Simulated assay, not measured.
Amino acid sequence: MSAVTGIGPVVPAGTGTRKRVRGRWNKTLVAGLVLFGLIVLCAACASLLSSYDPIKQNLGATFLTPGSPGHLLGTDELGRDVLSRLLYGARVDLRVGVLAVVSPFIIGSLIGLIAGWFGGWIDAIIGRIVDIVIAFPFLVLVITLVFTMGPGTTSIYTAITLVGWVAYCRIVRGQVLIVKEQEYAMAARASGLPTWRILLRHVLPNVVLQAIVFSMSDIVLTLLAIVTLGYLGLGVPAPTPDWGTMIQEGQQFILTKWYMSTIPGLAVVLTGLALALIADGIVEKANQ
């Protein structure tokens, strides 16, 4: 029988600490953060990992295979170093991919918060707009908008924001419909607090987790959209390197120079895997 004190049963020293440490982290989340951190670190240290200019041509050193002296991942049809283009392309794609999710996340979360809390005609109007947007495939609509506005990062940001906010709106709205019936939300309303304070301080922190989890997978979808736009020639303008452009340029040489398309393709897969692991890890953490 365990000894009893005024605050409860005594447990072996360190047991509670070990449980808290185990509950604080999980392998999936750590693996995702480490993998994504390495990708970001490589992109940030591009100038240290490769001494070549990613856009400088060297027609005397074209189609060098991976492992060639001075060119770890070889060169392309214009003699540009593949490793350098891969690293600098990661800078562009990761920056655009992450930033392109921020606006839809903020806008969609706030609209969903308003729709779910107030309901009525406000919710009905927002619901109709959401239904219209989601009637079209995400990627098709983004490509159409970028094609209409012209290639470039500004067009990409605008197109993804116009299309992507609806997913966050639906997620947050659904959570708000549940939360506003909870006792603490009803108590906040009964206390006479301003609506904006109730929404931002008491409701939003309790409904935003699902939107954050979705944002991890949404970055993957956005990254794929950026790569697709680059492949179609609607992405980041040349000569700035990006993974989609690298895949498109290497496609015509895929049978003999497989590395030109395969390496940037693997970079996209690894980045998507890292973000998927982070999302799964956050879900596991929330359910602990």
Rank of each mutant, 00 (worst) to 15 (best):
G89T: 08
V220I: 14
P151T: 07
T15L: 15
R22H: 11
G281L: 02
T28A: 13
N206Q: 06
W243C: 00
V213M: 05
Q252A: 15
E284Y: 12
A279G: 14
T161V: 04
A274T: 10
G127A: 00
R18C: 05
L41I: 04
V163R: 01
G79S: 03
N58D: 15
L234F: 02
G233L: 07
I132Q: 02
A279S: 06
V96A: 01
W196N: 13
F147I: 02
G37I: 08
D81G: 01
K27N: 13
V96R: 08
V40M: 11
I7Y: 09
V30H: 09
V96M: 00
V96N: 06
P66Y: 01
V213N: 05
T65P: 13
T154F: 11
L99I: 09
Q248E: 15
V11M: 13
G233Q: 00
P12T: 12
V11A: 14
R201C: 02
A276F: 04
R197F: 08
D218V: 10
L221E: 10
L41N: 09
P264R: 03
Y157L: 06
L162Q: 01
F105Y: 01
Y157C: 00
P54D: 04
I7D: 14
A185D: 11
L29F: 15
L87R: 04
L199T: 05
A274D: 02
V11C: 11
L72G: 00
S84D: 02
S50H: 00
I111H: 03
D93F: 03
S191L: 08
L193N: 13
G108C: 12
H202W: 03
P237M: 02
D242H: 03
R91M: 00
P9C: 04
T17W: 07
F253Q: 09
L110G: 10
F118W: 05
L35Q: 05
W196A: 12
P104N: 00
A279I: 01
I219C: 14
R170G: 05
D218M: 12
R24S: 08
